[in-house]
Each structure stands twice: as C-alpha cells, then as structure tokens.
Design a protein around this nucleic acid. Structure first.
Lengths: 224, 224
DNA sequence: CCAAAAGTGTTGACTGTACACCCATGT
DNA sequence: ACATGGGTGTACAGTCAACACTTTTGG
C-alpha cells in the first residue's frame, strides 16, 4: 500500500490484562521484560502483532503463550497512543482484558524467562510504559461489567461455593457485601444451580457446591 | 525504530461518528468519499493520522474540518481491525464518537466536495468499509451512556424546553417515555435549572426554558 | 464442647411506573 | 372558542438494605 510520508506510521502492539481471582483477591498477570526498553521491569504481557494476525488473534496468542489458556473471556479494552508512552517512538497499543479461573491457568516459564506471576491489583509494582494506567482502566471496566452482566462465571472454576462467589465480587467491587442479600439476589437471578455435592476437606461445615447454568455472556437487568 | 518484517505493519486511520439530534431524530454525519476505495460512497468522516498527531488530535482535526466544531464531547469508541475491512490491506481504524448540539455545527462543504450531511441513524444508507457496523456500535454505546451519565447536555443547545430534552432521550433510547416521570426525574437530579425566559414563536403555550447547571461530564446513580 | 464457616427471612425505606386533567397561548 | 402542546401529583408495586441467630462439621 502506498502512502505519503506526511502520515504517521505508528507501530502497533497488543497488551493483555489477564485477570483472575486467587486467595480472594483480584490479580493480574505480570511478566518481567526480557528486552529493552524497560528490560527487567515488570510489565503486562504483550508484543507486536505479527503478519497474518489481527489484534484479537495476537491477544489470543499471548494468552496461550503466557497463561496457557484458550477460549477464555476476551474483550478489547482501549487503544493507548499517548505520544511518549514508548521511548522508541509512536507506538499504539491495542489492549485487551481476559478473565480466567485460576485453576485453568498454567503459567509458562518461557524460554525468555519472563517470570510471569499474578500480582494483586491493589498492590502493583511500578510497571513499564503506561501499563499501570492500562490495568487501572481494565479494573474499572471489569467493575462496571460485573454490575450488569454475568461475567463473573469467567473467573470461577466449574463448581464453587456461594461464599467463594461472594468473595470474588467483593474483591472486584472492593467493598463488603451482605451475605443474605447476596445469596438471595444470586439465586433469584437463576444463573446458578446446585451441583448436588458439597465442599469437603475443611475443618468446618461443608458448603453446597454450585455451577453456572450457562457459560454464555449475558446482560442482566441490574445486579447489586 | 527498527523492527523485523515478520511483524504486521498496519496503516492506522481514525474515523469519527459525529452525533447530533435534529427534528427529534438522532443523526450522524456522513460524507461522500472523494477517493478510492469506495469513491463516491457514503462513509464516516475520517482519515490517516498525520505525523505529530495522536488519534485524539486527529479526531479533533476531523471534527473541526468536517463539522466546524471544537471542544465538543469526544470519546474513543473501539479499534476495528478485521483483516478485510479495507481492500488495500490491513488497516486499523481507531474510532471516536462525538456529541454536539445541531446549532453549533457548521457543516463545511470542503474543497474535495465531500457533501457532508446528517443522516438519521435509523435509516442509514449502505456505507463504505465497515462503517455501518461502527455506527451501530456507537449508537449502542451512546444509548447506555445516557442511562448513567449526564451526556445529553452535549447534544443540546444552551437553552431548551423539557419537551425537547425528552424528545432527545426518546430518539436515542428508541421508545416513548412518560412525560410526568421524565420531568420529575430530571428535576430531582438537579442537573438543570430554569433560565427564567420562555420559548416563543409557536402557536401554543410558551414553554419554560432550561439550561444545564454544569457542562461537565458526570456519572449518575441511575437514570431511567 | 468449641471454633469456624454455612445457611436462612422479615421489615422499612426508597424508587420506578402507571395514569388524566387543567392551563396558557395563537389563530 | 378551539386546537396545541405545557404543565402538574398520587398510589401501587417492586427492589434495595439492614439486620442475628441456628446448624453442621472437624478437631
């Protein structure tokens, strides 16, 4: 394609915020950069888009490579293009966020030893580029998404207790919720059903296990 | 910046959906393409990003050039990059939507005679590229935005009657609203105040004119 | 029997929604 | 005087938020 050079020819990258919930906290996957710029700094997983890829397929590749997951919830977040966000020059980052249950993620120690790990979003280190902003933006989006969709199913294992479910909501909206109201609301919504079995192994009363009836994204009238 | 050629080097454009309300209908600005591809087809205003611009400043330039407006509400919408959306090759379009009162817009008949005009979003022609999709996406976003922000002020002239305000909401959410409930709700919200003067010139009872107290974006608890 | 989490309903406040008539003006 | 849109309040239903005790298990 021919194009006069008075036009900007930005580089385009993809960065992915991979969310999960672990130990009752909302966490995002962070790697250590293997190359300049910001070599050794913590950062979001990401990279250039390759020939033959779109931004979505690039995000899917990153998800598979860094977190070993496929077919998880993935949504485009925003395109960041502040002029000096990358010291190398104008770089557009098309960002995505993904939601996956912790037990489906196999973190890969890559050949480039990027040391991926989950970091609680409430206590992130200073990240390379504008990646702290990106995660902040993603958390906001996730928060509001939980209020009017059933997106939470994407963060949970196949079966879970109501308390676990509530913990996830509390971790994301960042405040305590009333146990009775939460359970009433969720049961009324008809999104979940008891599996029939019970949690075991604790030194306490076993809890009923539930599963989502459907694992399709859905809009809700309202939530909490 | 050096970069191996196994990476995609997409072209990046900006397209802008400029919304307004006219004759009680939600409309978007459509131009006729002056050049190939799709020469002569209706399309969204847009173009390549120039050197020294970001996507926002490019969007602002397009707004100024095509609609003669500055300082209107402008928000990034989505980045479209379906592989075959442009016959010339991989082209990423970072899209924005803008809201402006009809009476602040001066449509410019440009040297390139792109014949800009407002077309009701409920009856759009077939547009170039994936521009029908883009507008559809923008309408959805606007609809939901109206429900939890005061964004409507961006579409209204400085003073307006409550009926005009209601018409705009009805045009966007695409259903009739109850007059008494609408007025009650809006007055309770405290966003608007009477100007003291009244509409004139009609062959009917003059209506109280209102203005928005503040023209800053604001979140609302809930709306209607 | 004790510790720890599971489980369960009611009430009052608030919010949303449905609904019909009189008023002020211009012609 | 009439046609046109302007303007106003009430009542019912549904939803949200606050709140405390009993149950089951393992140790």
């Amino acid at each position: 394609m021919t194009k006069p050079t008075r036009f900007l020819d930005p580089t385009v990258t993809v960065d992915v915020v991979i969310f999960t919930v672990e130990d009752g906290a909302l966490k995002a996957l962070i790697i250590k950069r293997a190359r300049e710029p910001f070599q050794g700094s913590p950062a979001l997983p990401g990279g250039f888009i390759r020939r033959g890829e779109t931004s979505v397929t690039a995000a899917e590749r990153i998800l598979a490579d860094k977190a070993g997951v496929k077919d998880v919830y993935l949504e485009q977040l925003y395109t960041f293009d502040e002029p000096h966000r990358d010291p190398r020059g104008p770089v557009f980052s098309v960002t995505y966020f993904a939601l996956a249950p912790r037990d489906e993620i196999r973190i890969a120690e890559t050949a480039e030893t990027q040391k991926p790990r989950f970091s609680p979003v409430s206590a992130l280190p200073k990240l390379a580029f504008d990646h702290n902003n990106i995660i902040g933006y993603a958390v906001e989006r996730l928060r509001s998404k939980l209020e009017y969709t059933n997106a939470a199913y994407s963060l949970l294992p196949k079966s879970f207790t109501l308390t676990e479910l509530q913990k996830i909501y509390e971790a994301i909206v960042n405040r305590d919720l009333d146990k009775r109201n939460f359970r009433k609301k969720f049961k009324e919504l008809g999104l979940i059903e008891p599996t029939g079995s019970k949690s075991k192994g604790g030194r306490r009363r076993p809890a009923e296990l539930y599963r989502f009836k459907s694992r399709k994204p859905r809009m809700l009238k309202k939530f909490f």
